[in-house]
């Protein structure tokens, strides 16, 4: 209300909307993966608003990357744990 610029949520929806044709041409399974990327970016709307970047989509891309990297970190940790457990199993004291 009473604002000149679109709010970050509206900017986000507009960006998402602008990829509607791209999304439509994807396979169903890819569409679902794309939706997850956007949902990941959505989690960081507050930070994107605070950043006030003139090209918000760059911020959204970074937010998607951030969530991806969190997943990688999580997976790497689990893998390390698994490997450590396997090691222990193979060479008990």
């Amino acid at each position: 209300m009473g604002r000149t610029l679109p709010s970050i949520t509206i900017a986000f929806l507009q960006e998402q909307q602008s990829f509607a044709r791209f999304r439509r041409a994807l396979r169903r399974s890819d569409q679902l993966a794309l939706d997850e990327l956007f949902a990941a970016a959505h989690q960081h709307l507050a930070a994107a608003a605070y950043a006030a970047h003139p090209l918000p989509f760059e911020t959204f891309l970074l937010a998607m990357l951030l969530e991806e990297h969190k997943q990688v970190l999580g997976l790497r940790r689990r893998l390390d744990e698994l490997l450590a457990a396997q090691e222990e199993h193979a060479h008990p004291e």
Partner: peptide, 12 residues
């Protein structure tokens, strides 16, 4: 304008 025209911080 980008820097100033904002509301309060609302997190997810």
């Amino acid at each position: 304008m980008f820097a100033a025209d904002q509301g309060g911080l609302v997190y997810q």
